[in-house]
């Protein structure tokens, strides 16, 4: 499926696609399925899966990622600092700790998992396990 056939309508159609998936229960089976921080989006690219999550303000060193079987656990903390003598006018950003475990409905290769953190966005590349890949069956 080509998501961006036309660069001018690209974002709008992508946003609509994401909205339409808000009712999907793809990840709901996990111990902290939906509604936990950080919110996650899941994409498919070929045979593999990619989880993307936005955690602005979290330092790479404060992030911990564990993979076991088809369960991923992402935990960490976010601190906000204000100068000693500052008068705070507006405080909307949240701080605190988080710990979220999700179980994927597909088998992944835990050794092949890669994580990339840039500009407050964490991307997890989850290669699908060989044993889980669909096979074409020849009809004799």
């Amino acid at each position: 499926m080509a998501l961006f056939p036309d660069p001018f309508s690209a974002l709008t159609s992508f946003q609509q696609a994401l909205d339409a998936l808000r009712t999907s229960d793809w990840l709901e089976a996990g111990p902290s399925g939906g509604g936990a921080y950080p919110p996650m989006n899941v994409f498919r690219k070929g045979d593999d899966f990619i989880i993307i999550t936005e955690i602005p303000g979290v330092k790479k060193s404060d992030l911990d990622l564990q993979v076991k079987g088809r369960t991923l656990r992402l935990s960490g903390q976010k601190a906000l600092a204000f100068p000693e003598n500052a008068a705070v006018h507006r405080r909307e950003r949240l701080s605190g700790r988080f710990d979220r475990a999700v179980t994927l409905p597909v088998a992944i290769d835990p050794d092949g998992v890669k994580a990339e953190y840039r500009d407050g966005v964490l991307a997890l590349f989850l290669p699908r396990a060989e044993s889980d890949k669909p096979r074409t069956v020849r009809i004799g």
Binding site: F4, R22, N41
Partner: peptide, 19 residues
């Protein structure tokens, strides 16, 4: 940069993206 999402098919979403 929406180009980063090229060839990616969303299967599950908990947040939206935008400028």
């Amino acid at each position: 940069d929406t180009a980063k999402y090229k060839d990616m098919e969303p299967v599950y979403a908990e947040y939206n993206i935008g400028h």
